[in-house]
Nucleic acid binder design. Structure first.
Length: 276
DNA sequence: TCCCAGGCTCTCT
DNA sequence: AGAGAGCATGGG
């Protein structure tokens, strides 16, 4: 599948399939990536800042080592998964087939569970540009400076704050939810790392004990942060798409990898309808 | 200006 | 169990 070459502080992934940087990094699953005027994407995950760009069929990642790439980024970009096979599987449904072909460069990012949970708590009743703004301020104010960016603040760091302390990020009513989540995680009442090996329903019910975490936010945390590819977050866009194109039900052929179908549909519906 | 946003909690039937 | 208001804030 991929040939991967490592040189000093740079990794080249040759002939990579189904990996479009813009589709993957700017489709609303992660909020800390941005592209510069030269088409280079910059971001940070798990405290590791990188830059990356595409060159023909290759993806070049700067500022990482062989060890870090295989220890983290390979899974972060879900490079072990055959998206081509999944897209063929989805082709049994005519509308999902079109969505999948339109969004065929999206990969589900395997983010850190705490960042995914916290980010999607912030996402509720909110729009993507503003979510990015709030998360940016959260990191600048409470993360740690590294290179010329900031890490995502840990649950431990946020657990000692009050809603007033979070006023600088202007997250509105969500501040108390962020703190409740941080406190439960920091106190080890909830073990986010353990959720990946629990069954989906059990993991969902654990996350929903957090104030401000309902089924949609919990699904996002499980899908983007815990590897639960069967999670199917239903936001307003997806609910509209389901009723308009799929008779209100998740297509049969998507079951088992419903989360990937969800992201394809989300991308497709927002591309075709006027995205807010 | 006004509507709405990758929802959830709380209250009232 | 289901419906509906309210929520903080600001992007478009």
């Amino acid at each position: 599948m991929n040939d991967i070459f490592c040189e000093n502080n740079r990794v080249i992934i040759k002939n990579v399939a189904n990996f479009d940087l813009a589709q993957t990094l700017d489709c609303g699953q992660a909020f800390r990536w941005s592209v510069d005027s030269g088409g280079v994407w910059h971001g940070i995950a798990a405290g590791k800042p990188i830059s990356l760009y595409s060159d023909g069929n290759d993806i070049i990642i700067d500022n990482t080592s062989k060890e870090e790439f295989f220890g983290f980024w390979y899974d972060y970009f879900d490079l072990g998964r055959d998206y081509g096979a999944i897209i063929s599987q989805f082709s049994a449904d005519p509308t999902l087939k079109i969505a999948a072909q339109t969004a065929n460069g999206i990969r589900i990012l395997r983010q850190e569970p705490w960042e995914a949970l916290c980010s999607f708590i912030i996402s509720q009743n909110n729009n993507i540009p503003r979510i990015k703004g709030i998360i940016g301020r959260l990191c600048e104010n409470f993360g740690e400076r590294t290179d010329d960016t900031y890490t995502f603040p840990s649950a431990e760091r946020l657990s000692v704050l009050s809603p007033d302390d979070l006023a600088v990020i202007r997250s509105g009513f969500r501040a108390k939810y962020i703190i409740d989540a941080a406190q439960r995680v920091a106190a080890k009442e909830i073990d986010l790392d353990a959720l990946q090996s629990l069954d989906y329903e059990k993991a969902l019910s654990i996350l929903m004990k957090i104030k401000g975490v309902g089924p949609k936010v919990a699904d996002c945390a499980l899908l983007y942060g815990c590897g639960h590819i069967e999670a199917f977050p239903k936001d307003v866009w997806i609910k509209r798409a389901l009723s308009e194109f799929f008779g209100g039900e998740i297509p049969e052929c998507a079951l088992g990898a419903a989360g990937i179908a969800q992201q394809y549909i989300f991308y497709y519906i927002r591309e075709t309808q006027n995205k807010a």
